[in-house]
Design a protein around this nucleic acid. Structure first.
Lengths: 229, 229
DNA sequence: CCAAAAGTGTTTCACTTACACCCATGA
DNA sequence: TCATGGGTGTAAGTGAAACACTTTTGG
């Protein structure tokens, strides 16, 4: 069932740079390519856009199919279309940055039909296509985003400690932060709701758990918000 | 000479939101559509990407062909690909934000074969396709960019006064700025080079002219830079 | 001499930064 | 009782914001 056009057309694809976070730091979700080109290499999850689906629907579908992830927080990163970036033919891809609560998703991603795995951002293998560039751009984008929106919380479980939150910011910004100043500033945002619970099963004083106030979160996310830390 | 593919493909286009600035404020360059759909409506300059050209090359070519503009400062805004955004068929467009020194280009743009004209950003007509949305996103992008990079200077003539620069920032940010604080901050950047000349033919005290130091400009543009004003 | 815009400093306040010790808990 | 991370306050410095008058020039 061929499709014919008067002028040649690039193929249009989507790719996702999905970040997760846990005690080992920041990770990116990759899949191992089964087919040429770059067979055996790791690459970003993604695929071709269908004619009747929006770009964000396409990337959500591909994430679901290839890695099992659903309900991912996604922002568009930009289009990559240099001729030759795919050796087979001209492909223009629209790249997205995704954030997930890693612990929720670790197992499902690894047990899918295609091999999918999380890689620490400081130990990434060489990737297929121009995906190295896209991941580097996505990291830079995340560093910017984290200062403007409280998206950090997209990466944490529903209940978390202030130390976890600080480690997350340190991992994204790649620099150490002062504990007292960090707590002062983040609590001053009036975004966190302190719970009556503490973490369990730790060999030291148990930390208080927090969750974030969704209403306040949406207000801040909409207004722009500047979290210089 | 038809082109046939196994699966259907969207068309891939580029569109440019080019901003200019003069004594009347901030303007956007539009072209009047000759053909359906939206014949007679104003739209962003743009067109389809050729198979052998990069995305930024495509937008530069279209700008040259449709408006006469060349050597425009361009940044990618993002991809727009919702099905139905073009009533004829599926088109994914990659939008760009451009900045030009308006006075250099005013005449050429208006004398081209197709009708092209500058519109003040606060008096835009209803645009074809989803171009209203793209322009709104481009304005938001410019407001962000202007705080992070000294791109404001892309919009001014080579020699300019501090008042012109302040008016530009006021137009982009849509709020008044304090004259003394503005001058203090912008001069503290060590980016401007004061000239021995003053403006001519004004009915009041003539203002000193400045130009910007390209080497310093590139340093700041690369480093990120934060110009909160 | 009048109109119009250019040019110029200081004070106040808020926020950022640097910094060190005691506390609670489980092993 | 020891090891581990949790939790807390203050002082100094820096940067932002508010604010009004004199100067220069051409008409």
């Amino acid at each position: 069932m061929p499709f014919t056009y008067e002028y040649p057309r690039p193929a249009v694809a989507v790719d996702a740079v999905v970040f997760g976070f846990d005690e080992n730091g920041l990770s990116v979700l990759l899949i191992e390519r089964a087919l040429a080109p770059f067979a055996g290499k790791w690459a970003l999850p993604g695929g071709f856009v269908r004619m009747d689906e929006d770009l964000d629907a396409a990337v959500r579908r591909e994430l679901q199919e290839e890695t099992g992830l659903e309900k991912v927080f996604l922002e568009q990163l930009g289009a990559y279309g240099t001729p030759g970036r795919d050796p087979r033919e001209r492909v223009v891809t629209v790249a997205w940055v995704g954030l997930v609560k890693l612990l929720d998703h670790r197992v499902r991603a690894a047990t899918d039909a295609r091999r999918a795995a999380w890689f620490a951002t400081d130990e990434l293998p060489a990737l297929a296509f121009d995906h190295d560039t896209i991941v580097a751009d996505a990291l830079a984008h995340l560093q910017q985003t984290v200062r403007r929106k409280p998206v950090g919380f997209e990466l944490l479980p529903p209940k978390f400690t202030l130390t976890q939150l600080q480690k997350l910011y340190e991992a994204v910004l790649e620099r150490p932060l002062d504990k007292r100043n960090f707590r002062k500033k983040v609590l001053a945002l009036d975004l966190l709701e302190g719970l009556e619970e503490v973490e369990q099963d730790v060999a030291h004083r148990a930390a208080q758990l927090y969750r974030f106030d969704m209403a306040r979160y949406r207000t801040l996310a909409k207004q722009g918000f500047a979290f210089e830390i």
